[in-house]
Write a protein that binds this DNA or RNA. Structure first.
Lengths: 193, 193
DNA sequence: ACCTGAACACCGTTCAAGT
DNA sequence: ACCTGAACACCGTTCAAGT
């Protein structure tokens, strides 16, 4: 699409224009977040956002050209809000449980993200960022309890397992029980090669 | 919708009518299978099937009322064809690898199945059947190598892990390496409580 | 740069009408 | 029972036209 010049109308100060644009984008993202939280990916559409903001359908498309661009932007906001502030205290299992429960609540949206990532670059980018963030955080969490030469594989294994946990709906005790079983199996033997 | 009487036109023998109906349904399922294999869930539609068979859109809907009914029926056929005949020989890892590679090829469709299972009873039913079949088979495969009191948990853990493996696209060596790591971790210590 | 409104080619579902 | 054809209310995307 090419770069947008920072301003268009001569009389308008540069900063003000920027503020306006960012504020509008924020409005759109907020509306999209609301729709996603209420009805998941199917409930999100240019029309629905436009209706909420009193705009034409295509006005939203000016800022987010495709539905998946809009989806990725809104979902990034949701992840930031829901996963951004982990508990400061607590042991490994407490923190792990917190993350898994948060991710469970977002399961349908994460599901849609994986689905769309195969078609949309924006979705693929967010998918990679999420994966990366989860791995990094989990690695730091496990580092004190796992031998250095096993850390990478254990981390990836747990992340993959957690992703698998979210695929099918399960009861909370079920989920947490399975998680605890795996972690103690992998962590409980720090000496093994 | 109510039950369908077995025949309608008086002159038509009961068996013949059944055969016709089953043959038509088989045709529709085959066409749907082709569409799913070629373009995934988005490529499937009543229209597309009807076009291939020279019917009106709504004729297909007579047999499969909703898109998800059609989807579940066709995907069941695909699972039967692709996962129905596992290798007769080989050790645990060989058989596991075979299943994971087959499932990987079907990843996008299984993905769609999980997505739709939340809205469609037919999809939910197939999802449960698949999960059940995988668990049963894996349990039998692992039984000789795992202590009885750990068998259930180990089985579920591996199934969940495999489901997680399929969530994100990975290279084949990556996938198989992770799988081998987990299985040797869980299997290699049969004596532990 | 930003937004509108109309148009295009779909989609799934419903339903009256035929045989 | 089975199938057609028309209708309904959408969808995402494109594009000429306005300011």
């Amino acid at each position: 699409m090419g770069a947008h010049p920072l301003r268009y109308r001569p009389g308008m100060p540069r900063n003000r224009q920027d503020v306006d644009r960012d504020a509008k984008i924020a409005e759109i993202r907020e509306a999209a977040v609301g729709l996603l939280r209420a009805g998941g990916y199917p409930a999100l559409s240019h029309s629905a956002v436009a209706k909420e903001l009193g705009l034409a359908r295509t006005a939203v498309a000016w800022y987010f050209a495709s539905k998946d661009d809009l989806f990725a932007a809104a979902l990034a906001d949701i992840y930031a809000a829901d996963l951004g502030t982990p508990p400061a205290d607590g042991d490994v299992m407490v923190r792990l449980r917190w993350a898994v429960e948060r991710l469970t609540a977002l399961q349908p949206l994460t599901h849609a993200l994986h689905e769309r990532a195969r078609h949309s670059p924006a979705a693929a980018e967010l998918e990679a960022a999420l994966q990366n963030s989860l791995c990094t955080r989990l690695r730091a969490l496990l580092a004190p309890h796992v031998a250095a030469d096993r850390l990478d594989r254990v981390t990836t294994t747990v992340v993959v397992f957690v992703e698998g946990l979210l695929v099918q709906p399960r009861t909370t005790p079920d989920r947490l029980g399975l998680l605890e079983f795996l972690v103690t199996e992998l962590i409980g033997t720090p000496g093994r090669s």
